[in-house]
Write a protein that binds this DNA or RNA. Sequence first.
DNA 1: AAACAATGTCAACATTGTTGACGTATTTTT
DNA 2: AAAAATACGTCAACAATGTTGACATTGTTT
Lengths: 166, 166
Amino acid sequence: MEFDKNEQGLYEFIELLFFAYRDFTAGPDDELKAFGFGRAHHRVLHFVARNPGLMVAELLDILRVSKQSLNRVLKQLIAEEFVYQEQGEGDRRRRHLFLTAKGQKLADRLGEIQMQQIASSLSDFGPEAYQNICNGLLSLIADDDQAEVLARFGDARRRDVETDDE
Amino acid sequence: MEFDKNEQGLYEFIELLFFAYRDFTAGPDDELKAFGFGRAHHRVLHFVARNPGLMVAELLDILRVSKQSLNRVLKQLIAEEFVYQEQGEGDRRRRHLFLTAKGQKLADRLGEIQMQQIASSLSDFGPEAYQNICNGLLSLIADDDQAEVLARFGDARRRDVETDDE
DNA sequence: AAACAATGTCAACATTGTTGACGTATTTTT
DNA sequence: AAAAATACGTCAACAATGTTGACATTGTTT
């Protein structure tokens, strides 16, 4: 299949993104049903897992939903002890979010499902092709947000290095 | 930025897909508000525009929603004359879907918004990189569905060629 | 005639999004 | 110290979009 950058080809690109997203979210959605959770809960679990100590305001900026919408799922996750909060040390208005052991376990499980799917999907691609795919997705992100996303990636990597050193 | 295929890198891939989808759907969503429509209406407009004469059952298979959920938005689109139906000639139970002039105009407008976004996002990529990106998205689609998607692409291309010949 | 298929429709409900208003700590500014 | 701003939580109402179950209509197949 040749993908061209004419009008026809760009319409196909739109559909590829739709179908990829549709199929990519299907696995975790199923798993979450058993817990009475949905995709909104998954997002919180994912970003808290990847950014321990994340503040509510930061999460709001990532998800781009109203605080009331976030609070509804966050409240459930805290009540059922998948997530806990710690008061900020410098500024005690802030609530830093962390996963409990139970939350970490679920986040890991959901990650595993998606990882397997990506890994098997992308196994045929060499490193250069993989870079192309990632850079392609990155460039689809609004210009203003790209730096933000990369900054969080950088932080997560630094945090991992520090953790490895401990 | 180097994207690796380790666990860290695959988590980043998940996020890239999330952010790309989030920002990519934002533009049309805004435009649709003026018509009192949402993303669900957009999907119908898109797939009917790309596959004139599409049957309801096919649309259900593409969107993977219940017929009741589809019918709610389809009914509105028909009532407000963005979409019309034609009874099947061979099998008169079937309803083939088409866009009216008004529907086509809106579909074109939404397409234009997304096309500009893709075109400017992907303009830096050469043909090989673009093939990688498309093939990457394609491989994320469930195996069972890939053939189906490609078949529809093929049909649309053939239909375009026929149309050009007329 | 009976069964099946394609579509439409009614009703009830769940999830996840929205806006608006208000409350409570806590920190910053004046 | 008082006032303003910030970070977060909460209540309520509502909208969009998804679900399931039941049933009707029409047309086709057996």
